[in-house]
């Protein structure tokens, strides 16, 4: 059984799956739009939560939230299930495919054989769409791959039952009833409001621009606190979280700028165009930080990329984002 499904590559897996599924039901919602409505942008720095002895730094919201929020804000019904028994999870997937429903899965990247070897780490919140089955093989639209791929049943089962942080527990999901007209303007407003609120209004020093300021302070102190070798490993880790596949570059700032550009049209609001441009420049600033930071990791030191200089770049990003999200809130409320 193969469902006619258009595979479109995207920058980020979850917004890509959301967009591809909506497109399947004849709603041309772009990836950037899904990302924005689903409030995908975030910043969080949790130095006391360690993954492989490195602090948790994230530029995106909680896994699963983009799809859930985007669907609910657009008035689209969602079916979502988790399983205890792998066999039942696979049977349910087969039944869903046989019924002609393209089905989203949460998987662990480590177990997906078609994924580029260099990117196979234990990350358990990777999303993909299964749109067919031929014998023991599944046809998969993985949004970060440029073409549709195949995956053997045993491998897919393993990936669906990956263990550890964010374990998917076989989670599968699909769209139910889709309204004829999507309430785009209202959904866009709600998507922006939540992100802006998180970035500048939440009184917690770990998230939003306050989290960035805290990160900047720590970056400055890493060499004294951790020693040179560990400081470089921390810096490399930060750049990886910001730039590794699935961000579209600059810690999702560019994809968010693309969303703001579309939002300007949906809301017929010229002010958003200028803000989209500012967001692009902030993304460029994050990229400069990654470029100079990576040079330091490589041992090419200069006055430009000392730890205090790098910290200053993060601080500038924070300041500019603070202004930008306050502006967004002001424009939305006016």
């Amino acid at each position: 059984m193969t469902i006619e499904f258009t595979h479109r590559q995207s920058a980020h897996c979850e917004s890509g799956v959301t967009s591809n599924l909506l497109n399947h039901y004849a709603h041309p919602v772009s990836e950037a739009m899904a990302f924005g409505i689903g409030s995908g942008l975030f910043f969080g720095y949790f130095p006391f939560i360690k993954i492989n002895h490195l602090p948790l730094i994230t530029f995106r919201g909680a896994p699963g939230s983009i799809f859930k929020k985007c669907a609910s804000r657009l008035g689209v019904q969602v079916q979502s299930r988790q399983f205890r028994a792998p066999r039942r999870a696979m049977d349910a997937l087969d039944a869903s495919i046989d019924a002609g429903v393209p089905t989203g899965l949460q998987t662990g990247v480590y177990w997906l054989p078609y994924f580029p070897a260099a990117l196979r780490f234990h990350f358990n919140a990777h999303n993909l769409v299964v749109f067919g089955r031929e014998g023991d093989e599944y046809l998969i639209s993985d949004p970060v791959v440029d073409h549709a791929v195949r995956c053997a049943r045993a491998d897919l089962e393993r990936a669906r039952f990956a263990k550890g942080a964010l374990a998917p527990k076989g989670r599968m999901y699909s769209l139910g009833k889709v309204p004829e007209q999507l309430p785009l303007p209202a959904a866009v407003r709600r998507g922006i409001k939540e992100v802006a609120f998180r970035m500048v209004r939440v009184p917690v020093p770990l998230i939003g621009v306050r989290g960035m300021e805290m990160l900047a302070r720590d970056v400055e102190r890493w060499p004294q606190k951790l020693g040179d070798a560990r400081a470089l490993i921390h810096l490399g880790h930060l750049i990886r979280m910001q730039e590794e596949i699935g961000t579209g570059g600059g810690g999702f700032r560019f994809i968010y700028a693309a969303f703001l550009q579309e939002a300007a049209q949906v809301l017929e609001c010229r002010e958003f165009e200028a803000l989209a441009q500012e967001m692009t420049e902030i993304g460029d600033q994050w990229r400069r930080f990654a470029l100079l930071g990576a040079r330091r990791c490589k041992g090419r030191d200069s006055a430009e990329n000392t730890f205090p200089a790098l910290a200053q770049m993060v601080r500038e990003c924070a300041q500019r984002e603070k202004f930008l999200f306050n502006e967004l809130l002001r424009v939305l409320d006016s």
Partner: peptide
């Protein structure tokens, strides 16, 4: 991979990227 970039008119377009040296470098570090 897909990157988001602006064209000559300042509009966003999706552009395939073969990778970026700084992110390759930190991947190797990992």
């Amino acid at each position: 991979e897909i990157a988001y970039a602006v064209d000559e008119e300042g509009n966003y377009v999706l552009v395939p990227s073969a990778g970026w040296e700084p992110s390759n470098l930190v991947n190797v570090q990992a």
